[in-house]
């Protein structure tokens, strides 16, 4: 089995090498301040500011949707998503964006939304309300 051991050792070595390079692909959730400082492509998690303007006018540009979120430090910035406005956007509880700071704006190319789940929905659906 000697040869196989050699192969196995080589693979473990490769795995360690890969894991070290993989660290570059990973990051912690950044804040706007950190994103502005580093200028890197980062992920930001935040809450949608529902009172601020959400702007999507496809007639002007179907790939421009802007809104405001508060990051984990409570810092609020404008976000530009280079895509259409997703359905149920207003309902989202938490938003994870991938992108980078451009000046005062965070330009995102990817977005994940977490919407309230049905399981947590405490509302009972009642027929013909007021009956």
């Amino acid at each position: 089995m000697k040869k196989l051991y050699i192969v196995a050792i080589l693979m473990v070595a490769a795995a360690i090498a890969l894991l070290t390079t993989a660290a570059d692909d990973m990051s912690t959730y950044a804040t706007f301040v950190q994103a502005a400082r580093s200028g890197d492509r980062v992920k930001i998690a935040g809450q949608l500011s529902k009172d601020k303007e959400m702007y999507y006018n496809p007639a002007e540009d179907p790939n421009y949707f802007s809104f405001y979120i508060k990051d984990t430090d409570g810092e609020e910035r404008k976000v530009v998503l280079l895509s259409e406005k997703p359905q149920d956007f207003e309902l989202s509880e938490q938003i994870v964006l991938t992108g980078q700071m451009k000046g005062e704006e965070f330009v995102a190319t990817d977005m994940l939304m977490k919407c309230p789940s049905k399981y947590k929905d405490e509302e009972v659906y009642i027929k013909n309300e007021g009956k």
């Binding site: 496809p58 007639a59 540009d61 179907p62 790939n63 421009y64 530009v80 280079l82 895509s83 259409e84 980078q100 451009k102 000046g103 330009v107 190319t109």
Partner: peptide
Amino acid sequence: NNPFVMDGLIEGATSEELRRNIL
């Protein structure tokens, strides 16, 4: 690909990939 995208509006979005939608 949207040929009418205003330059400057989407600053930094160099990749054509990003402009997926057309009106």
